[in-house]
Design a binder for these strands. Structure first.
Lengths: 223, 223
DNA sequence: CGGCTATTTATACACTTGCACAATAAGCCT
DNA sequence: AGGCTTATTGTGCAAGTGTATAAATAGCCG
């Protein structure tokens, strides 16, 4: 028991609250992403992460076998969130395939997906994909899922135009459209101030319609 | 003087050669890029870099004020090399604007520009662009230079087709084409085995011709 | 050949890192 | 209320970090 007369024993142990397991893991992952986004992988030490999450460093070992696993789970969570947001834009009701495609593109080329922090995370983790197969796999899965979504919408759009593309043509369109979205996304993230609001989406939609050989259509009135 | 009878004095000092200043700086920069590509920024310690360059860690301080400056110079060198290679493809003689554009795209979507190591470096450094304005500026300059090249060729191509685009249209095309190349480049770097040789270039050229509204042309016979 | 200079090595230092582990207390269960 | 589990803290440690600086030697100049 601490003796009040002994100065060295005056240092009180920090108060804490027990949180649910899932909540703590989530907080730690979020703190990890914040740290990586701000200072890169090198600046994301266990102590920094723990400080941000409001706990002490030792606790991390209680939830994750080591730092590497924490980083992997954080990246997986990031990829999951990104693709989830992107796909959500496809779920608009009462819309033509072409409108849904346009909405999908617009969603991917505006905030919150176009975001410097997200880009920083994406780039930082992907830079290690060469060396870390787990990261490479997480990316690959996210990418393929995304491209499949694109391919599905493209098929619908072309079907609505009474066109019947073969498999390889569909694949080519999906690859190209994916590239257009990715490329514009990067440009927007890295230099948001160079583009007026909505400009990237407009460029993207036009480029994609050209790729698909769609006749230019009158503008929709959108908010 | 070392005494042969004293075991502690037996440790011989390492032999070395004096190299020219420029050569040493170049070697150190190369070793830095190799280290970063292989182990990321966190794994690129001064000792690792020095070992790879065949010198000891202390020497780095003789050529660079600190680690940060070494990394910045390394990234600048990387960007310079990339854009230089890309632009070189534009310098083909006796070719129509359209052929030059196609050659430019093909050069950017094949080895050695499509390369996992280069991508790893690109991503790793860009992940820190948010935090490090020097890196951000190095990227910005490389990007704008690249886009200006694109814009210039596009202008030539359209002029050859007797079309007179206004400034904003030219800008839109350049942004879109840049995005197509970037996006396909990334896909190729991250998953080279998913594409057959030349496939990315073919997809890119087709997409760009669609963007510019060029009529499909007969294939050139190329090696 | 003998000295000079600046390139290069080697060592020291203060600090941070990831991880291991013992000590502690929060909060559920009975 | 009181005990038990276990989530959480705090401390320690060996390895590695960037930087500073002293010591050594390679190679040019006379």
């Amino acid at each position: 028991m601490p003796d009040a007369a002994d100065p060295a024993a005056m240092t009180a142990r920090r108060k804490f609250r027990r949180e649910g397991e899932e909540r703590r893991r989530q907080d730690l992952i979020e703190a990890t992403l914040d740290s990586v986004a701000e200072h890169g992988l090198q600046g994301a030490s266990l102590r920094t992460i723990a400080l941000r999450a409001g706990v002490t460093a030792g606790l991390i070992r209680h939830y994750f076998p080591g730092k590497e696993e924490l980083l992997q789970e954080a990246y997986t969570a990031l990829v999951g969130r990104m693709t989830e947001q992107a796909k959500a834009a496809l779920a608009v009701e009462d819309a033509s395939p072409r409108q849904r495609l346009a909405a999908f593109v617009a969603a991917n080329l505006n905030a919150p997906i176009v975001d410097a922090r997200v880009f920083s995370l994406w780039a930082t983790f992907l830079g290690r994909a060469n060396a870390d197969p787990t990261l490479a796999r997480a990316h690959r899965e996210g990418y393929l899922g995304f491209r499949n979504e694109v391919e599905a919408v493209v098929a619908e759009v072309l079907a609505a135009e009474r066109r019947k593309p073969d498999e390889s043509e569909l694949r080519r369109h999906a690859i190209a459209i994916n590239a257009i979205i990715d490329g514009l996304w990067i440009e927007g993230c890295l230099a948001a101030e160079m583009f007026s609001p909505g400009e990237l989406a407009a460029i993207g939609i036009k480029a994609i319609e050209a790729e698909l050989g769609l006749a230019p259509e009158k503008q929709f009135r959108e908010t």
